[in-house]
Design a protein around this nucleic acid. Sequence first.
DNA 1: GTCTATAAAAGGATAGAC
DNA 2: GTCTATCCTTTTATAGAC
Lengths: 235, 235
Amino acid sequence: MNASATKSVPCDFVQQSKRDAIIEGATEVFLANGYGAASMAQIAYAAGVSKQTVYAHFGGKDALFEAIIERKCAAFMLPMTSQCLAGEPVRVVLQRTAENFIEAVFSVESMTLYRTIIAECARFPELAAAFYRSGPRVAADTLAAYLSEFDKRGELRVSDPKNSAELFFSMLRGDLYLRRLLEVTPDPTSKEMVETLARVVEVFLAVHAPDKASPGSTVGTGRENCSKYPDDGTI
Amino acid sequence: MNASATKSVPCDFVQQSKRDAIIEGATEVFLANGYGAASMAQIAYAAGVSKQTVYAHFGGKDALFEAIIERKCAAFMLPMTSQCLAGEPVRVVLQRTAENFIEAVFSVESMTLYRTIIAECARFPELAAAFYRSGPRVAADTLAAYLSEFDKRGELRVSDPKNSAELFFSMLRGDLYLRRLLEVTPDPTSKEMVETLARVVEVFLAVHAPDKASPGSTVGTGRENCSKYPDDGTI
DNA sequence: GTCTATAAAAGGATAGAC
DNA sequence: GTCTATCCTTTTATAGAC
C-alpha cells in the first residue's frame, strides 16, 4: 500500500524506467558521435542517470552498442513491410515499393545508422550482417516475390527475380544516396528524388517488358572481345 | 666529408625520408583502424620514428589524417582515368569503363578508404566532399562526355548524359558493393561481378538504344495515381 | 631534426554507501 | 537499483637533451 515497493517510479512525467531512458540516451549519443567518440559519461548524462546505472543494465560499452544498433536495425524496415501490395498492378507495386524504400532509406535517422554500422563493421561484424539481413535483403526478397508473380502471370518477363529486385533498388539509390551519405552539397532535393524514382520505374518496366528478352539471359550480339581481360569469366 | 651533414641518411635501404615513412605508416594505421582508434604512438611505431617526429612534420592528429586521406583520394581514380577510350565503339567504352570502375572501387583499399571517410564525414566534411569530387563525380562526368558523343553520332539515345552515367554506375555497384562494404558473407565472387557487369552493359544498351524513347523523357503511359503521395511532385 | 621522458586529460570500469 | 567517488589505462601533446 505504501511507496516502499522496489520497482515503482513515483514521478510519472519522467521516463517509465531507467532502462528506457538509457536506451534513448545511448541511441542519441551513439548515432550522433559514433562508437569511438561516444563516452559512457556522455550517455549517462543524456539518459539522466549515473554511469554505474548504465553499467548495471548493460554490462559495458560494447554490449550497450550492440543492443542499441540491433534495436534500430529491427525497426529499420518498418515503412517497407507495413504495406501489403498483393494484388496490385505492376506499376503500383513498383511505385509504392520505391516510395517506401526512399522513405525508409533516405531518412536522416537511417543514414546515420548506416554510417555508424559501416564505421564499425570491422569491430562489430555481426551488426553489419544483421543490418544487411533486416534491411536490403528483406527488401529485395519481398520485391522478388512480387516479380515472380508478375512473371508467372505474364505481366513482366523476369528470369531472375532476385537479381532484378536488386537492380531496382540499386538504381533507386543512385547518386542521390551517395551524396546524402557523404553530406555533399548540393543535397538531393525532393524533386530530384521524385524524378529519379519515376525514371527508375520506367527503366525497370522497359527492361522487363513481357515481349522482350530478359536481362538475365545472355544476349550474344557482338559481345566478343570488348573486355581488357582474358575471356575466362574472371577479373 | 664526414657524416655530420644534417639531412643525409647514410643507410639507403630504408625509407628515403622520415616524412615518407610517416605517410606510409599513418596511411596503414588510419585505414586499418579508423581515425578514432588509431593512436599517434601506433603510427609512430609503424613509421619507425618517434612520436615527436610525427608532430614535428604534421602538427597534430587531425592535420595528419586530412593529409593522408586527401592523398588517397587523389590517387583513387587512377585506374579510371589512365585509359583513354575516345574513338572506341559504344560497347567497348561501356565494358572498359565498367571494368575500370570495378577495379578501382571494389579493391580492398578503396573499400577501406570509403568506410573511413563515411565514418568521419561528420568530423571531416571537407574530406567527404573531396572524395566525392575526385571519385564518383569525375567518373560520371567522364562517362557522360562519351555518352554525349554517342548521342550526337546517333549510336545511342541519351537525353540526359549526366543522369544516364550515374545510372550506369549505380547499377554497377548494386548489391555486390553493399555486401562487400558491410563484409557480409557470402562475399561477391569474381564470377558474380563479371555477370553483373555484363548484365548492366546489356541493360544500359537496351535502355539507350537509338530507336527507343530516352528514359529521361516522361513516358505518359498509365502513370496516373500510382503514388501514395499527393501529385504535387514532392514527397 | 630526432629521440626519451613526462605532463595533462579523458575514458572505461569498479567499490562501497544507501 | 542507484548514486558518488575513485582506480587504472590509454592518449594527445609538449619539454628538453643531443
